[in-house]
Computed example of a mutant assay.
Amino acid sequence: MPARFAMLADPMIAVLVIATALAAVLPATGEARGLAQLVSNGAIFVLFLVNGMRIARAEIAQGLANWRYFVPLLGWIFGVMALVGLGFMQIAQLTLPPLVALGFLYFGCLPSTVQSATSYTSLAGGNVALSVVGAALVNIAGVFVTAPLFALLGGGAAAEIGYETIARIGVILVLPFVIGQAVQRWTRAWVIERRASIAWLDRGVIGIAVYVAFSGAVEQGLGSLFGAAQWAMLLGLVAAFLGIAIAGAWFAGGALGLARAERIAFLFAGSQKSVAIGAPMAAILFVPAQAGFVIAPLLLYHLLQLVAAAPLASRLAREPR
């Protein structure tokens, strides 16, 4: 498949489209929404339990040892990108609904992807091993960092994220991951052997979280709040955010003096955002009536990052080393 169409092969695109379309025509409301939320929380718990089982402790130690790459990457993702998200939130507030504008700050605070960032690093001729370990570590950090950082930068807009919410994140995200790490000696090989099935577990959990979130947004009149001009503004702002992320991550890698292969890994890890963390965490942080609005910019960003990443990776692969 040509690189420019590579994003069409990503099953996650189909999952997101199906989840949002189903929420639009058959939203979970009333008692059904409460049941759907319980199912979503349970699925998220299982997903992070499996994540704890499959990420080897040796890989975590290896990534931490490469501080020259990992520390700047953390600073870029949870520092620079979060501040860019804050700036875009303030711009978006001028024309978009407040919760949608808040979504720019939310996905600015998220960690990077694992699968697609690693795949495109490989396609571009980057350091794949470093990409895998770095992305895994950034995602682990995101479980602990994203919500407090979002609350800190969001101020009054994110005031509802209090101790109770943080505790809920601990129970649904952190606790199962810790349990998975504790039992991985006996379970990791079993999980690795079933990696294809586990990938569909990831997609299924994300799909459930997106469905629950958009069900609440549809019930609150998501479609009626947006005119053509507002959709165009949202798309334009997301595209501009992505452009800044890609250019900034590339030049930051150069300024750090990273070797070309490491710089490519930094580019994709630093510019892509994880819907695998973002959708489940939004389902915990926000009630369904709010979550669908907040993750709308993230879902658009996820689509655009795939559209941009394939030709970018192919171009980097063709350039002289």
Rank of each mutant, 00 (worst) to 15 (best):
A3L: 08
A3D: 04
F5N: 05
F5S: 14
A6H: 14
M12R: 02
T20A: 10
A21S: 06
L22F: 14
L22Q: 00
A23G: 14
A23T: 01
A24K: 04
L26W: 15
P27C: 10
E31P: 15
R33Q: 04
G34W: 12
G34P: 11
L38S: 14
S40A: 14
S40I: 07
N41H: 15
N51H: 12
M53K: 11
M53V: 15
I55T: 15
I60A: 05
A61F: 14
A61K: 05
A61N: 09
N66C: 12
R68S: 01
V71P: 00
V71G: 07
P72W: 06
P72A: 00
G75S: 07
L83E: 08
V84W: 10
G87Y: 10
F88E: 00
F88V: 08
F88R: 05
Y106C: 06
G108Q: 02
C109R: 02
L110D: 00
P111M: 01
P111S: 03
S116Q: 12
S116H: 10
Y120N: 12
A124R: 02
G125N: 03
V128T: 08
V128K: 04
S131R: 02
S131H: 01
S131G: 10
V132C: 03
V138P: 01
N139P: 08
I140V: 14
T146R: 05
T146P: 11
P148E: 03
L149P: 09
L153E: 00
G154Q: 01
T165C: 05
T165K: 07
L173F: 15
V174C: 07
L175G: 06
Q181S: 11
V183S: 01
Q184Y: 11
T187E: 00
R188F: 07
W190P: 08
V191L: 02
V191H: 01
I192M: 14
I192Y: 12
R194Y: 08
R194C: 08
R195W: 14
R195A: 14
S197H: 12
I198H: 05
L201N: 01
L201P: 11
R203A: 13
V205F: 12
V205L: 03
I206S: 04
G207R: 03
G207I: 10
G207W: 12
I208D: 05
V210A: 08
A213I: 04
S215H: 00
A217Y: 11
V218L: 13
G221F: 04
L222W: 09
G223T: 13
L225R: 14
F226C: 00
A229H: 13
Q230A: 11
Q230Y: 01
W231N: 00
L235N: 09
L235S: 12
A240G: 12
F241A: 13
I246D: 02
G248Q: 02
A249N: 02
A252W: 10
A252F: 13
G253M: 05
A255L: 15
G257F: 06
A259F: 09
R260N: 02
A261I: 09
E262A: 14
E262S: 15
L267V: 15
S271K: 03
Q272N: 15
V275G: 07
I277F: 14
A279E: 04
I284L: 14
A289C: 03
Q290H: 13
A291M: 01
V294S: 04
V294I: 07
V294M: 06
A296T: 12
A296L: 15
A296I: 08
P297E: 00
L304Q: 07
L306Q: 09
A308S: 04
A310T: 05
A310R: 05
P311S: 07
P311Q: 03
P311I: 10
S314F: 11
L316H: 02
L316V: 10
